[in-house]
Design a protein around this nucleic acid. Structure first.
Ligand SMILES: [Mn+2]
Ligand SMILES: [Mn+2]
Ligand SMILES: [Zn+2]
Ligand SMILES: [Zn+2]
Lengths: 147, 147
DNA sequence: CGACTAATGAGAATGATTCTAAATAGATAG
DNA sequence: CTATCTATTTAGAATCATTCTCATTAGTCG
C-alpha cells in the first residue's frame, strides 16, 4: 500500500468520527504514513514542525488516531519513546538487540493462535503487540555496540 | 514455584555475576518474587522503603536483574509504568482493556512459532514479549470504566 | 455579521526514571 | 588490626517524554 493511500485512510477515519480534517491533522497523518516504519511522536513532530505545527497538536492527533484503533502504540526496551505502528494486524515486530532495527514479520497463523489463547482463557481478542528480540541478519557474530 | 525459591534464584544470579548479596538487594529480590504478578519499580520501592532502602537502589537492582536476563521489562498501554515479568519464557500476557487485569497464558508451541519466525527472517531468537489486549472473563458485556 | 464550538499551540507542569556526589560498608594487603 | 581501595547505597537534583493550561484562532451555523 502506498504512503499516500495510507495517509488518506488515517484522515478519512478521523473525519468519519467527527474530527475536522485540518491542515495540521493532514500533515501529521501524512508524516505518519510517510515514515513507513514505527515512528515516535518526536519524529513526527520533527518532520512537521517546519509548517509551524505545535507539539501539542502532534500528540493530540496521534493519541486520537490510537484511540480510534487505526494506529497502535508500542514501546521497545531499546529506547524510552513510545512508537506507533500503522499496521494494526497481529504480526511480529522483530527488534535487533544490536542495531535496534525493527523488522515486521507476518506469519500465517499467528493471529489465530493468539485469538485462540485468549479464547481459552475465557477472554475476547481485541489487539496484539508482539515483540521478539534477537540478532538481525546483519548483526550475526558481531558484539559491537549499536548505532 | 514458591516465591521464596524464586527470590533465592534472583539473588543467586546476582552473586554468580559478581554482585554482592547485600540486604538491600535481598529485599528487592524478595519483594519481586513476593509480588507474584508483573510489578512496577514503584510498587517494589513501596514495599521495601520501610526498611530504609532508597529508590535509586531499587531501580539499580531491577535494572541489573534485567540486564542479566532474569527478569524482563514490559510496558503496557494501560499505564505509563514499566512492569517486570519474572517469567522470561515466551508466553502471552493477556491484558484486559477494561479492568487492566494481567493474565499469563502459556501456550504449547508459541515459543517455537516465534523462534521460527525469527529464523525465517535470518535472525536469531533471544527473547519475546507478547501482549494481547481484550476483555477478560469478568468484563464481558460491561462497558463501565476500569478500576 | 454575531455567537457558539472545535482546534491549535506556546509554555508550564507532571512524573517516571536517571544521574550526581557524598557517605558507608566490605574486602584486601601489610 | 589498620590503612587503603573499591563496591554499594542514597538523598536529592536533573532529565525528558508526555500532558496540561488557557489564551488565541478558525470553522460552523443561523
Ligand atoms: Mn510493526
Ligand atoms: Mn507474564
Ligand atoms: Zn542488527
Ligand atoms: Zn477485565
Amino acid at each position: 500500500m502506498k504512503a499516500d493511500e495510507r495517509a488518506r485512510r488515517l484522515l478519512r477515519e478521523l473525519e468519519h468520527h467527527g474530527y475536522r480534517p485540518t491542515p495540521q491533522r493532514e500533515a501529521v497523518c501524512w508524516a505518519l504514513a510517510q515514515h513507513g516504519g514505527h515512528p515516535t511522536a518526536a519524529e513526527i513532530f520533527e518532520s512537521v514542525k517546519r509548517h509551524g505545527i505545535g507539539q501539542a497538536t502532534v500528540y493530540n492527533t496521534i493519541t486520537t488516531l490510537e484511540k480510534l484503533g487505526v494506529i497502535q502504540a508500542m514501546s521497545l526496551n531499546t529506547d524510552e519513546h513510545t512508537r506507533y505502528d500503522l499496521d494494526t494486524t497481529p504480526h511480529v515486530n522483530f527488534v535487533c538487540s544490536q542495531c535496534s532495527r525493527i523488522i515486521d514479520c507476518h506469519a500465517p497463523h499467528l493471529d489465530l493462535m493468539l485469538a485462540q489463547i485468549a479464547t481459552q482463557a475465557g477472554a475476547t481478542f481485541e489487539a496484539a503487540n508482539v515483540v521478539v528480540y534477537g540478532r538481525c541478519e546483519h548483526c550475526q557474530g558481531s558484539t559491537v555496540s549499536a548505532a
